[in-house]
Design a binder for these strands. Sequence first.
DNA 1: CGTGTGCTTGACAAGTTTCAATAGACGTGG
DNA 2: CCACGTCTATTGAAACTTGTCAAGCACACG
Lengths: 237, 237
Amino acid sequence: MTIPASKGEILTNEACKTCSVRSVALFKDLNPAVFEKFHASIRDIQIGKGESLYTIGQAGERVFTIREGIVKLVQYLPDGSQRIVRLLKQGDLAGIEATSGSDYQHDAIALTRSESCAIPVSTVEFLASEQPQLHKTLLTKWHDALSTSDSWLTRLSTGPSRYRVIRLLIWLAENTHEKAFYLPGREDIGHMLALTTETVSRTIADLRRDKYIELVRSDYARADVKKLKAIVKDEAD
Amino acid sequence: MTIPASKGEILTNEACKTCSVRSVALFKDLNPAVFEKFHASIRDIQIGKGESLYTIGQAGERVFTIREGIVKLVQYLPDGSQRIVRLLKQGDLAGIEATSGSDYQHDAIALTRSESCAIPVSTVEFLASEQPQLHKTLLTKWHDALSTSDSWLTRLSTGPSRYRVIRLLIWLAENTHEKAFYLPGREDIGHMLALTTETVSRTIADLRRDKYIELVRSDYARADVKKLKAIVKDEAD
DNA sequence: CGTGTGCTTGACAAGTTTCAATAGACGTGG
DNA sequence: CCACGTCTATTGAAACTTGTCAAGCACACG
């Protein structure tokens, strides 16, 4: 199921310059002349739903800037049960632990068809030594990851099932530009919130009956974010 | 309750050279001559149980290397309930988000009397520009924080209360050099595991009756780690 | 037009919280 | 030195939430 990163295509320089995530990407502040020299080491990786970018325990040789799609990071307990510890979306960096010389700590699996740039760690390291600003961008990426992790502990793993599901829906709705957002399968949601699929299914069915959310397709939904926030007493925007 | 970091004492250069956490500290690889120039900006901060190193929302001006004690990082939900997202111990870095220019994201409160070194972010930044190795050490610290966060999601926030308590006890026992380890109050444990104090109390009382743990004082315990691991099917050492 | 996969629902069991009361530990001041 | 108040831990009983097991349903795909 894993797609070797080395299999990807090389993107044209032009494609990189007009990239949708350029403004938040790792190399956003990089001197174009310097960047051009290393451009060829970067691969365009496209994977379908259910395919993986990398696997837990693999040597961390590349980081992946997500351009499109949603990727789950999964860890496992000794009994085989799993936990989704984060979702990555446009602009996020997958496999960031590779930049500290570590093996990958998760399975990175696409929830939706995904596009990403695979960047060798050696490229990151070399460019960072030439352009110190990259260090700062990298720290920001670490910071984002840790903030998200903390937020998952505080907001998605605390309180009754209804609140957890609602907070996840708010997150999904607010991290999408379209009116409708991707709604993961009940089992995946369960693995994000430490709940069973049945409990998640009941909760979502309830929220639909109460008109807080509405399915536009089996895996796309629209939500009344304002009302949802009122329920969990989240600060209004 | 917060102790302004600027109030701390200056440590002698000698004290730094023989520091107990020197081998894992931020400046472990630093050229002594360079270090000496910035030594004076570092303060020795000692705080008692219940006092805080910094508070959520404060401008992140310093990072703190913990030399002694246990510090909890706390976040809050809109309804006022709290969640402990990590515990810091000897060698860990508190307030690491300050190095990415962010405000502090938690309340950092001592569970036991604690000693730490307060290092201005400006010092870290300047030294990093002189000694690139420091960048790598810093990335390692970020990586440690994120690994711990992931592990709290996977191991401490998943499964029945008994398993969560046991996994926390294992963590506490393994992160202590003495035979007995610090056992936090039931309420704090509850905030780490997303359980009520009553549930935690019952679970710990049960584990005591079943002889898996034994209190040597109200807040210190000894545990049969091997048996505990067998229960949660953790890989034996 | 079956077959598979994922979603929903029901009924019951198990686990957890809630509310309330009691018991212990500890420090203060009489 | 003991009495008292405070704070934390423990325990019980009832209410509630979530998990488990089992069945039915819907939609997609071959």
